[in-house]
Computed example of a mutant assay.
Amino acid sequence: MINAYSADGSMRTLLPEEALRQLPDGVVWIDLVGPTPREDAYVESLVGVQIPTRDDLKDIEPSSRLYIEKDAVFMTASLVWRADGNDPELTDVAFILSGDRLITVRYAEPKSFQLFIAALCRVPDRMRDGVAMLARLLETIADRTAEILENTANRIDTLSSDIFRDRGRRRAPRFLEGKLSDIAEQHRLLSKVRDCLGSLSRLLTFLMNVQLVRDHKSDNSLCRAVAHDVETLSEHAAFIAGNIAFLLDASLGLINVEQNAIIKIFSIASVVFLPPTLVASLYGMNFRFMPELDWHYGYPLAIFAMILSAIIPFFVFRWKGWL
């Protein structure tokens, strides 16, 4: 799909079948969403710039992600996608500055793009060219990333409350084992966010040194502000990562404590019942000559000895504080 956005915030979907020889007047942003090879070729004929394919976007080398070719600036960033679900992913998005026009190529629907498009018609006067459009788009991406981090921090706080509060009401260690999967999900999301922030940081550093952007003082200042926000978000992400590591260690430690408590109960029970077992074993032997066999009260005395030998170790353990 090819969506063309004008400076006034209006949007028009371009189709290869239209066979336009030039773009409509006022188009400052061309957004290619899951383009086919035919659509790539069509846009290339309109703007005179080679459109990167899906395989081109997957290159991880900086020289393949950030470069200038024929006065066009090519940049690729990895953005978080489906962060609100249980299966977050990274999707590569290409940003191309060609003259006064911005071209984006993406094969997913990050929420930041949806938010930016929804707000596009409200502030059209600030985005009269591709550089301004890109600066505002990167600002929206940073804001969306900050929202993801805030939601992650809230989930981690909820997990912390579940793990450390109301311990008597939960079924441990099965309860804690269930929380481990929740911690793993948040760690996976946070790792995606940190990769995204690292990618954005490299892109912004490259972008601020491009002459085309340096000539736009207001947009360059906005890029610097976004770069500072990304740096701050990276520090906050590192802090959240530390909290996740602490929760993971704490959960594993509590599981070990609960398991040790269970083992301790079984150990004490075996020790408590060892003396009665010894008494029962003595009087369970079938020797012919045993003095106690002729005792009239031998059986109740044996029962009493077994009960007494179990009670004494129990109270000794209570006195030692082992129970």
Rank of each mutant, 00 (worst) to 15 (best):
His228Gly: 15
Asp229Trp: 00
Asp229Leu: 07
Val230Cys: 09
Val230Glu: 13
Val230Leu: 07
Thr232Tyr: 05
Thr232Ile: 12
Thr232His: 09
Thr232Asn: 09
Leu233Tyr: 11
Leu233Asn: 10
Leu233Ala: 10
Leu233Ser: 07
Ser234Gly: 04
Glu235Gly: 04
Glu235Ala: 07
His236Ile: 10
His236Gln: 14
Ala237Lys: 10
Ala237Tyr: 02
Ala237Cys: 06
Ala238Tyr: 04
Ala238Ile: 12
Phe239Trp: 11
Phe239Glu: 14
Phe239Gly: 13
Ile240Arg: 01
Ala241Ser: 14
Gly242Met: 14
Gly242Val: 15
Asn243Val: 11
Ile244Phe: 04
Ile244Gly: 08
Ala245Met: 15
Phe246Ile: 02
Phe246Asp: 00
Phe246Leu: 08
Leu247Lys: 04
Leu248Ile: 08
Leu248Cys: 02
Asp249Leu: 01
Ala250Pro: 03
Ala250Gln: 00
Ser251Val: 10
Ser251Asp: 03
Ser251Tyr: 01
Leu252Cys: 01
Gly253Tyr: 05
Gly253Asp: 11
Gly253Ser: 13
Gly253Arg: 05
Gly253Asn: 08
Leu254Thr: 00
Leu254Glu: 04
Leu254Val: 00
Ile255Cys: 01
Ile255Gly: 07
Asn256Thr: 04
Val257Gln: 03
Gln259Asp: 03
Gln259Phe: 06
Gln259Glu: 08
Asn260Ile: 09
Ala261Pro: 03
Ala261Lys: 11
Ala261Arg: 12
Ala261Ser: 11
Ala261Tyr: 12
Ile262Ala: 15
Ile262Pro: 01
Ile262Val: 15
Ile263Cys: 02
Ile263Asn: 13
Ile263Asp: 00
Lys264Ile: 03
Lys264Asp: 05
Lys264Thr: 03
Ile265Tyr: 07
Ile265Met: 13
Phe266Thr: 08
Phe266Asp: 06
Phe266Arg: 08
Ser267Leu: 12
Ile268Lys: 00
Ile268Pro: 05
Ala269Ile: 11
Ala269Glu: 06
Ser270Phe: 06
Val271Trp: 08
Val271Glu: 01
Val272Asp: 11
Val272Ile: 15
Phe273Glu: 04
Pro276Phe: 06
Pro276Thr: 06
Thr277Phe: 02
Thr277Ile: 06
Thr277Trp: 02
Thr277Val: 02
Val279Gly: 01
Val279Pro: 02
Ala280Leu: 07
Ala280Gly: 07
Ala280Phe: 05
Ser281Val: 03
Ser281Glu: 09
Leu282Cys: 11
Leu282Pro: 11
Leu282Gly: 14
Tyr283Phe: 07
Tyr283Asn: 03
Met285Leu: 02
Asn286Tyr: 02
Asn286Trp: 08
Asn286Met: 09
Asn286Ala: 15
Asn286Arg: 08
Phe287Ser: 12
Phe287Trp: 06
Phe287Pro: 06
Arg288Asn: 13
Arg288Ile: 09
Arg288Tyr: 15
Arg288Lys: 15
Phe289Thr: 13
Phe289Arg: 14
Phe289Trp: 14
Phe289Gln: 13
Pro291Asp: 00
Pro291Val: 04
Glu292Gln: 04
Glu292Pro: 01
Leu293Gln: 04
Trp295Met: 02
Trp295Lys: 11
His296Glu: 14
Gly298Lys: 02
Gly298Glu: 05
Pro300Lys: 08
Pro300Cys: 09
